[in-house]
Simulated scan of single mutants.
Amino acid sequence: MGVSLNDRLNKMSSVIDTRNKKIDEMCEEVVRLSHRVNSIEREISSINQTNAEFHESLQGISNVFDGIKEQVDKSENEFQNMKIKLDAMEAKVVHYASKRENEIEELIEKNEELTDQTLDLRCRSMKYNLIFSGIHENVPENTEETLRGFLAEELDIDYDIEFTVVHRFGQKNNKRNRPIVAKFIYQRDLDYVLQCAYKLKGKTFQINRQFPDEIEQARKSLYPIMKELRRKGETVKLVRDILYVNGRPYDPEDSGPAETLKYPQRTPSRYGSSSNKRRRINSTPEKH
């Protein structure tokens, strides 16, 4: 019975030791769990802090984007205002350019009118002028006496024609005789000299009316046309830079003389204008 109690006590003691050992193990496990919980809490705290910082960063980014959007909206408004101003300026520039273009066209037109008027005045100032070419030039010489001798010897004009001025023009050249220009006082004398010019046929002398260079160039371009029309039997007359065919101005766009009065062949404008404005002309050719 005593042995049995000891056995029981030993057994109970063994059980208690086992349980104490389990309790110790459980305590150790609790400690480990506690450490793990603390570690998890620290991780959660860190995550929370990171999350807070992230949210703070997001808020900062949101604020930046809000600022950018505000700047974009402001820039867009400024752009629209600038576009409105530019459109207004463009309209003003177009209006100003159109106005200036009209003014330039008016100035060109006035310049052309002045050019025509000046050319007309120059033609009028040369109306009583004849150019004599091929007359021998003496050095020295009295040019008027030389011309009178030519008129008497070559044209059989035996009376004294009155001149306003007689002189040679152009640079002196020993290899050729400079032309003589003579301004007549009376139209009848000039006409008579021209009537007698047929006596120079086959000789080296020439008598021509004097015209400004612009008119002279236009006349030169009309000479072949005039020659061809005469060959065809047409009645042609060249007055200044206008070619008359059967009494009407020649139209270069037609194969023959113009049926109606159209723009005559004339000196091109020095300004290059393609204006169709018609120059004043006589309805019939002049008698010279």
Rank of each mutant, 00 (worst) to 15 (best):
A218E: 11
K227S: 07
Q59D: 07
K99P: 00
G202Q: 06
V193M: 05
L243S: 05
E78N: 13
I68D: 05
G170V: 09
F169S: 04
K262E: 10
T50C: 05
D160Y: 01
Q117I: 08
E28L: 13
A218M: 13
S283M: 03
R270P: 14
K92S: 14
R42K: 13
I40S: 06
F150I: 06
V93W: 04
T204R: 10
G247Y: 01
A52E: 12
L190T: 01
V139T: 10
E145I: 14
D254T: 15
S34K: 06
V139R: 14
Q217S: 11
Y244H: 09
V236G: 03
L130Q: 05
D73Q: 09
L238A: 07
N63Q: 14
L147V: 12
N138K: 12
E113G: 11
R148G: 00
A91S: 15
T115A: 15
Q210N: 14
F211W: 08
T267Q: 05
D24L: 08
V166E: 03
E105W: 01
R36L: 10
S57T: 08
N177Q: 06
E216N: 05
F163C: 04
G2L: 14
R148D: 03
V236L: 03
I40M: 13
G134K: 07
P249S: 13
F132Y: 15
R230W: 00
S255I: 09
E259D: 11
D254I: 03
P257G: 15
